[in-house]
Design a protein around this nucleic acid. Structure first.
Lengths: 351, 351
DNA sequence: CTGAAAGCGCTTACAG
DNA sequence: CTGAAAGCGCTTACAG
């Protein structure tokens, strides 16, 4: 069933069918109604393959991606980038192109890149939030130009409705609470460690703490929870009160609210702490190494590569099929243990 | 860069380019070499969109799926089916079609359906293994017809090389060991429960037990492990020795090697067992209900829907791009806790 | 062994 | 307001 058959049924040319389908106007009310009815009756669905074959050659679909700098060899932000490139590659033949823009920890940087992106009128924007103010400004300008925006990684409060592809950080904090509670048992105490660096948003960290506390607030679990704010800019001095905290012999659960869980095992060995359990986020090399050694018990994966992939795919579906259902979504809270990183005996994937 | 430009560069017609690209023969050695060189130099990549537009109208890509019956309302096998249908729907415009064939727990059933599938010469086959013998027979016939086969859900030993999309069950057993060990602590004992039903393969169950034991064999952990084989056909009688086992006050970890973990909480309450922890597989309604109530501590998800989706997609890539890299793959071992099934406060996905 | 042409379903610029 | 025609990049049947 294609436009040709629709045209025959409606006794008009395929050009007229197309005019109705795309609401391009220049069709009399009568024929329009007739055509619309036939479209409905036949349940016609546009053949995207043919459509994109034609369009890809003329009008590319251009994405702008605004993401923190990725200068470190193991930068976290390379991962969403990878997912984005994978999606763009899959959609290459549909005429999809992408340009990357970066911002540093400095406030003006995000704004400057935003301005550039807006000036070039892309078809869609994927951005990692810097802070409320800058994101509001970007979103406002994009909406004015009718350009859809999907934010990655962190959900922040914005003035206008916005789409986010990110993990539910509060829920992730609750999961962390459950995992640690399982290891610590009924009697024990907990330490939440916020490792601060740069001036970016701390929204995820706060949400994770909230979720962690919410887990212990629920039902019959109440817990002794201490909070440590540690700035990466300073050397890892141990506050005396924390040293005391670590010295106890009871079971102790430590929750690092971002990707820096790897700073803890060293700290623990310095102090000689025992009976501790550790949960953190993200699969960077150092975290995974400690997970394998058993010094980190669980890591929660935000699936950054998948986030990038999903953002592009969902925007593409929106642009080509007006399907906005995937623009806003939770990325599953993936719990990782040592075994996830072991080679399996029965692995035959090299075949 | 398309065949038209290749043709110009090689001073031949696009027909000749196509003959070389598809190895259809009828090209002189000289021109073939010249064309091949130009293809290499330019890094030409076929435009799949245009290719499929042309082909989809003539020659459909037809998949046969051989899967256990799904008569129960909540049958597990509806899930891979869902994923398969999702993939087929996404590929509809590329001319992809699918037919489902079913088999029951009886031995002749798989064979009969296999024979039907083979007689109709599909382009590719997705099958859930019944047993070694039947699968060997199917695979042999398919290979003879040069029809690729991907097996879902369970890896079994076959005479010829075969592709599997499934979880690494041994590794999943190790993960289960780790999760239970974390809850039970250093002192405690373990029960492995195999719930048997029908005459299908028990490979996954055995592999999971192996992995579970392997976890405790490793390093310094040694554990007291008991095994219970329980047939679903009989009422849930409690063997006296198991009743004794459950009565102890020490920490007890119970590992159900398939989707029937939900039979355990009832058993525990009957006996009045305390200090128990429970890990099982699959997100069926009853398991999830107990997970939410806290009577199951962890569920491992095999992501059956994703398995089905992946099988179709990877076969499509193989058929259309000769890309066999995705035909054989491990599905991640997804660890689920109660929080994964809670509504998030901040959920705005209804927007 | 090689080329010219028709066609896949849709889009668009042009003619009336 | 409407139709006929060209073309997206590839495939294939036909003619030479």
């Amino acid at each position: 069933m294609g436009i040709k058959q629709l045209a025959k049924l409606a006794n008009v040319s395929i050009g007229t069918i197309d005019r109705v389908l795309h609401k391009r106007g220049g069709v009399s009310k009568d024929t329009e109604l007739k055509v619309l009815e036939i479209i409905k009756d036949t349940g016609y669905q546009k053949n995207m393959v043919a459509s994109r074959l034609k369009l890809a050659s003329k009008k590319k679909i251009r994405f702008a991606v605004l993401i923190p700098e990725t200068k470190d060899a193991y930068s976290y932000w390379k991962l969403p980038k990878k997912g984005i490139l994978k999606a763009v590659d899959e959609l290459r033949e549909f005429g999809v192109k992408v340009d990357f823009y970066h911002f540093s920890g400095l406030s003006g940087s995000f704004r400057a890149s935003s301005a550039q992106i807006i000036s070039k009128t892309y078809d869609a924007i994927v951005a990692v939030p810097f802070n409320e103010e800058e994101c509001n400004a970007l979103l406002e300008k994009a909406k004015a130009g009718n350009i859809p925006v999907v934010f990655l990684d962190t959900e922040i409060d914005l003035e206008e409705q916005a789409y986010f592809v990110r993990q539910d950080s509060r829920m992730a904090g609750m999961v962390a609470g459950r995992l640690l509670r399982g290891l610590v048992g009924a009697v024990g105490k907990y330490l939440i460690v916020h490792v601060l660096n740069g001036e970016g948003t701390q929204t995820n960290n706060r949400q994770r703490e909230n979720g962690f506390r919410a887990f212990f607030d629920a039902s019959d679990r109440s817990a002794d929870i201490t909070v440590l704010n540690h700035s990466l800019e300073h050397p890892l001095v141990i506050f005396p009160e924390i040293k005391n905290w670590l010295n106890g012999s009871e079971a102790k659960g430590i929750f690092v609210t971002n990707s820096r869980a790897y700073i803890i095992p060293e700290l623990l060995s310095t102090v000689g702490a025992t009976n501790t359990f550790l949960v953190g986020f993200d699969l960077n090399e150092r975290n995974v190494a400690y997970l394998k050694e058993g010094q980190i018990n669980f890591l929660i994966n935000q699936q950054p590569k998948f986030q990038g992939y999903v953002a592009i795919k969902s925007l593409f579906n929106y642009l080509t099929k007006q399907d906005s259902s995937e623009l806003h979504q939770n990325i599953p809270i993936e719990i990782m243990v040592k075994e996830h990183f072991m080679e399996s005996d029965s692995d035959t994937s090299a075949l």
